Measured scan of single mutants.
Amino acid sequence: MEVRTIKVFTTVDNINLHTQVVDMSMTYGQQFGPTYLDGADVTKIKPHNSHEGKTFYVLPNDDTLRVEAFEYYHTTDPSFLGRYMSALNHTKKWKYPQVNGLTSIKWADNNCYLATALLTLQQIELKFNPPALQDAYYRARAGEAANFCALILAYCNKTVGELGDVRETMSYLFQHANLDSCKRVLNVVCKTCGQQQTTLKGVEAVMYMGTLSYEQFKKGVQIPCTCGKQATKYLVQQESPFVMMSAPPAQYELKHGTFTCASEYTGNYQCGHYKHITSKETLYCIDGALLTKSSEYKGPITDVFYKENSYTTTIK
């Protein structure tokens, strides 16, 4: 009895394709271990004539594949690729409408935090270190965002349907971005203890939790000093293409032309909904596939993004 075979390709990165001759009487799992086709788990399936010449994702289970996976995804987590594939199996079914010149995501599976993050990423200057993220990001900007969303979920250790947080998501993504040249110098002034300067680099240099107003941050924000008295913390120097200011959701007025974009969060910790506000020729609110415009805006804002380049204080 002759062994019926077909020729397929296996890959971990969709760049390096490895030619395989597979036995049609055995499952993919018996031949390769966990195997995925377009995100779908085909591990328990036997090869079919229609699979001839198709590319299958496999887990990096030998040295060659491990090197290829690390170079593309910059992670050695053995569960990463499987999590990416199972997320992709959902995100490829989502709709990605162009809204006001940006790629958004039609609401499904509690994905409003991903839509808000995706919209924000198209408006701030950011370059990702893992080629996987950078490639998928370019495709997302062009309207094909399924891979990018699935990668975000995998890097953030999230599953489809789980509630997510924009600030946490951005923080994970910033860790995989090139923020080497970003720098922030802060000064804390206390009447009792004097003053202390701190220099922050990388992710810490672009994120701040405690106030939404970048102007206020430049002037000074009140913080408790270690001595128990009130101290003032203010920005001395900022070198970065953008800054992200966050605070627990509270009524906040966004003035046209003073910011790049913002995240609105309605609801409580267990259950809520994100919308995205962007400042173009007027203010726009993007909620999944829905767009509304207004000249002014007041609502429960939790993150505001500002364009920056270089700032030095005039406070002496």
Rank of each mutant, 00 (worst) to 15 (best):
L151R: 04
F32T: 12
T91C: 09
G82I: 13
N129V: 08
Q20G: 09
N110T: 02
K293D: 10
T169W: 00
G228N: 03
A145K: 05
T10Q: 10
Y138R: 14
F70A: 11
N111D: 03
L119Y: 02
E204Q: 14
D303L: 04
H273F: 00
K201G: 08
Q251D: 12
K307G: 07
N89P: 07
F80G: 04
N157K: 14
T292S: 12
Y113R: 07
G299K: 01
K191P: 15
K293L: 09
A250E: 12
H273Y: 00
P241D: 09
K95F: 10
H256P: 14
P131F: 02
A231F: 01
P241F: 02
I152W: 03
H90V: 12
V3C: 12
G272W: 00
D62G: 09
G257V: 02
T232V: 14
G210K: 01
P130H: 04
Y172K: 12
L59Q: 11
Y57I: 10
P78Q: 09
V42N: 07
H176I: 06
V21P: 11
G164Y: 01
W107E: 03
E239P: 01
Y274W: 03
E71L: 08
D23Q: 13
E253N: 10
T27I: 12
Q31Y: 14
G53W: 11
D77W: 03
F217I: 14
W107R: 06
A69R: 05
M24C: 15
G33W: 03
S263V: 11
L186A: 07
C193P: 04
T120F: 03
A136Y: 09
L163M: 12
I6T: 11
K293S: 14
L133T: 04
G39S: 14
K44N: 14
S181R: 14
T10L: 15
E52V: 13
H51L: 05
I124R: 04
A289Q: 10
K298E: 13
V22Y: 02
H276F: 11
Y73H: 04
G202D: 03
M24D: 13
Y311E: 11
R184H: 02
E215I: 05
L173C: 07
Y155F: 03
H256Y: 11
H273E: 00
T159Q: 14
L114M: 08
G228Q: 04
N89R: 14
Q237P: 01
R83I: 06
L126A: 04
C156W: 00
T43S: 13
N157P: 02
V221N: 03
F32S: 07
L65P: 05
Q197C: 09
L121M: 09
S79Q: 15
Y265D: 02
W107L: 04
T260M: 14
A132F: 05
I315A: 15
D62A: 08
L235N: 01
G39F: 10
C227N: 01
L65V: 07
V8I: 12
R184P: 02
L235Y: 00
L81K: 05
T43Y: 09
K7M: 09
H18F: 07
T169P: 03
L153Y: 15
T103I: 10
P248A: 09
L173A: 02
K293V: 11
Q237I: 09
H176E: 06
K191R: 10
K307Q: 10
P60T: 07
G257K: 05
Q134T: 11
V243E: 01
Q123M: 05
C182W: 07
S171F: 15
Y36Q: 05
R141E: 07
Y297H: 07
N16Q: 09
F80R: 04
N61E: 13
Q20N: 11
H48V: 13
V203D: 06
S181E: 15
G210H: 01
L114W: 03
L290F: 13
S25R: 12
K275Y: 00
N178P: 04
Q270D: 15
K275G: 02
Y284H: 10
K93C: 09
L102F: 09
G210N: 04
L102N: 04
G288H: 04
Y28M: 06
V189M: 10
T35G: 06
V8W: 04
T226A: 14
Q31D: 06
G288M: 00
N111L: 05
M26D: 12
Q30V: 12
G161T: 02
K54S: 13
L119A: 07
P241I: 01
E281S: 07
D109M: 05
A117L: 04
L119P: 06
Y138H: 14
T192S: 14
A250M: 09
Y265L: 00
Y57V: 11
Q251N: 14
Y208G: 09
F80Y: 04
L173M: 15
G101P: 04
T64P: 09
L133R: 03
A250Y: 08
L179I: 04
A136H: 12
E239A: 08
N111K: 04
S310M: 15
V58L: 09
K233G: 10
F242S: 00
T169H: 03
K54H: 13
T232M: 14
R139L: 11
V21S: 14
I277D: 00
R167Y: 00
K44L: 12
Y96I: 03
F305H: 00
R141C: 13
F32C: 12
T159Y: 12
V221W: 06
Y214I: 12
